[in-house]
């Protein structure tokens, strides 16, 4: 043990570890598990048809990108997601704010919206396809609905939890209710809105995949399902990995937005 501690390579590792612990372990975990997966697949520890291998997924990706057969699917899914999600958030946030701000409206719609939020809205996909057909529109509607209630409900919950004391300050200095809304309700609700948007984004992504599974001829969900029926595990995994990467990138983007809005929150600066 003592001898090992002196070895320069280990010293370097130790320094790296303490300088940025999170990144060090993260990279270690990522590279380590990917390598283990590759080795296990190639030594026949499990059948390649079950999980494929990183190198096979990589190869499939290179081929499909080169042939131009992957991007149309990615593009379609992205477009469905972007339109549905942005419209959903753009309507849900003002609606949630209005509902929360007016006490009686809040009481009136509270139970109904909570019920709709608790409904797994993917159950409505068959109905939506019945109404809007199997094309692009039905996917956008699914995405819209998937995100909508989560954002509305978290937003009005945020407005409800404004500190009474903060509203009192505006009143004490003779400020109007509209001023209180802009200067107190809006800023103190932003953390709730953002967490609603985060939950909504996750659900919207589930919506895209599900709707594309059930009926589509384009899109990443279709791509996964299609190659699933052909037992092409590498391409199934490729689609899954791309969805995962999309989810991670989306989460990181939202985190950046959160930081932009949360300069005043001490817990993020420790």
């Amino acid at each position: 043990m003592i001898a090992v501690r002196g070895a320069p390579a280990v010293q370097l590792l130790g320094r790296l570890r303490s300088s940025n612990e999170r990144v060090f372990y993260g990279v270690f975990g990522f590279v380590g598990l990917t390598l283990a997966w590759e080795i296990a697949a190639n030594t026949g520890l499990f059948r390649k048809s079950l999980l494929s291998s990183p190198s096979a997924i990589w190869k499939a990706g290179v081929i499909d990108i080169g042939a131009g057969t992957l991007w149309p699917h990615v593009g379609t899914s992205l477009e469905e997601f972007a339109i549905g999600f942005i419209v959903s958030v753009a309507i849900a946030i003002p609606l949630g704010l209005a509902i929360g701000w007016f006490r009686r409206i809040d009481y009136f719609l509270n139970g109904l919206l909570a019920a709709l939020n608790a409904t797994p809205n993917v159950a409505l996909i068959p109905l939506i396809i019945l109404v809007a057909g199997i094309g692009f529109e039905s996917k956008v509607i699914v995405v819209f609905l998937s995100a909508f209630f989560a954002v509305v409900v978290t937003t009005f919950t945020g407005v409800q939890s404004i500190a009474r004391r903060h509203l009192e300050i505006t009143r004490s200095f003779g400020g109007s209710r509209w001023l209180a809304f802009r200067t107190v309700a809006l800023p103190s609700t932003i953390p709730y809105i953002l967490s609603g948007v985060r939950i909504g984004a996750g659900r919207a992504l589930v919506g895209v995949v599900s709707a594309e599974f059930i009926s589509a001829n384009q899109g990443l969900g279709f791509y996964i399902g299609f190659f699933g029926t052909f037992l092409d595990t590498a391409r199934v995994m490729l689609g899954i990995v791309l969805f995962g990467i999309f989810g991670v990138v989306l989460g990181e983007l939202l985190r950046v937005v959160e930081h932009r809005f949360d300069v005043w929150r001490p817990e993020l600066h420790r």
């Binding site: 612990e21 999170r22 060090f24 372990y25 993260g26 270690f28 975990g29 990522f30 380590g32 598990l33 048809s49 079950l50 996750g202 992504l205 589930v206 895209v208 995949v209 599900s210 599974f213 969900g221 996964i224 399902g225 190659f227 699933g228 029926t229 037992l231 595990t233 199934v236 995994m237 689609g239 899954i240 969805f243 995962g244 989810g247 991670v248 989306l250 989460g251």
Partner: peptide, 25 residues
């Protein structure tokens, strides 16, 4: 911290995307 990237990946992934894979299993 080692498992962090994987857990985050799977948490961000819409899990229903795994259906065709599990069907293969």
């Amino acid at each position: 911290l080692t498992f962090d990237p994987w857990l985050n990946f799977f948490n961000a992934l819409p899990r229903v995307a795994l259906i065709p894979l599990v069907v293969l299993w």
